[in-house]
Design a protein around this nucleic acid. Structure first.
Lengths: 215, 215
DNA sequence: GCAGTTTGTGTACACTGTCCACTTGAGGCT
DNA sequence: AGCCTCAAGTGGACAGTGTACACAAACTGC
């Protein structure tokens, strides 16, 4: 049945076809399973059924592979936020409620991703990230926006409906992002770990409330 | 001069004296220099001038050494917060200002440590942490309190002086902690990286303001 | 149908954590 | 004092990792 001469996923052709993509997918799977330290080059090649060095035709180093996985992780984060936004009841004009709900959705998507895809979330933030100056579409969701841009838009809405005075808009991204990111960390590694998701959700709501009131 | 038969820090006695402590110190130094992934067992033994396996008489595994280093990192964090608290002007009765200043100091100590001892800060949070249920004195500052306890006290003060309604006290730790921890992450890996410390300080002040107002 | 360039293979090296058997010597016993 | 014990450090080994170099295969454009 299994032919011992062909390693894992038996390959007929000498060329693989799209090894880069396959390695990236394997890397993503590894990151999902065990976070950044689990994306190991040799294991990725093993899963794809190719010799370790083959990876070097597509990635200069393990680090470069990891970086590609990180980009995918950011995209996943953005998608999670988009999904939460899409679940919002539709509205024509932005209102105070809608703007508030939008920001809440952004935060909820962030937290949900951290809880549901912890390995990827960890991977995304394992190293430097500057989404403001980074237009890489690989790091964006299906709508083409990265997590930071989604947040920025939500804050702009907040100003538009008068919930946030314009003079406090500057730097508000960092304050809001800090709060939500910190809570994600507490939820996956800290004292909030193991709490039922709905409880985290409530705390998240409260956190966003704090941000909106306190900004 | 240097005797080639004695490896690095020439040791006269076959027994080391306090190898555990020496290895831990070396581990801490490694963590300071390069974060958690840099605390490698073999390098620690090398620095101490002992054969790799000697470490196993004192730590069951690299992970256990890392854990000891993490504890020290938490202690360092607590100490940084204590230092900031000690720099506060003295006051007899807690007042609104003093309570606010106390919380600000707690946050400032947290951020300062993250910026000044990035490697240790990373190490501390590389893995699960539950300071509420952890009374390990190794993770406490010189006053005997760990970072979480220092925060808790500051929030209690806030209630005492009436800045925080008691009904909102429950869970406030998590909201405040989230905000400050998140900002620390943005400051060492995110878009706030490289900003002058005073700018981070200002943002931190603003963040604490947001927390107090929004809680 | 051939030359040249990609892409995957084979072999090798340095480095890591960790296992096992061995040696050393400090401290308690007689 | 002399001996014994046993914790503490040594030596050698192995599997696993990232990566460098030389080689083989097969797709590409002419």
């Amino acid at each position: 049945m299994t032919d011992k001469t062909t390693p894992n996923p038996a390959r007929k052709t000498y060329r693989h076809g799209d090894l880069r993509r396959a390695l990236l997918d394997a890397g993503i799977a590894l990151a999902r399973e065990g976070g950044p330290s689990s994306v190991v080059l040799r294991e990725a090649t093993r899963r794809v059924g190719v010799v370790p060095n083959a990876a070097y035709r597509h990635f200069a180093s393990r680090k470069e592979l990891l970086e590609a996985v990180r980009a995918a992780a950011f995209a996943g984060l953005a998608t999670s936020m988009e999904k939460e936004l899409a679940a919002l009841p539709p509205f024509e004009q932005p209102t105070a409620e809608s703007a508030r709900a939008t920001l809440t959705a952004v935060g909820a998507g962030y937290l949900r991703f951290a809880l549901a895809e912890t390995g990827l979330f960890r991977t995304a933030f394992d190293g430097p990230f500057e989404p403001e100056t980074d237009a890489d579409p690989e790091k964006a969701g299906e709508g083409g926006m990265n997590p930071f841009q989604l947040l920025t838009n939500a804050l702009d809405d907040l100003v538009e409906v008068g919930l946030l005075p314009p003079e406090r808009r500057l730097g508000a991204e960092y304050l809001a992002w800090s709060a939500v990111h910190g809570m994600a960390m507490l939820a996956i590694d800290g004292p909030l770990y193991g709490r039922p998701p709905e409880q985290i959700g409530m705390l998240g709501q409260r956190l966003i409330g704090m941000v909106v009131n306190g900004l």
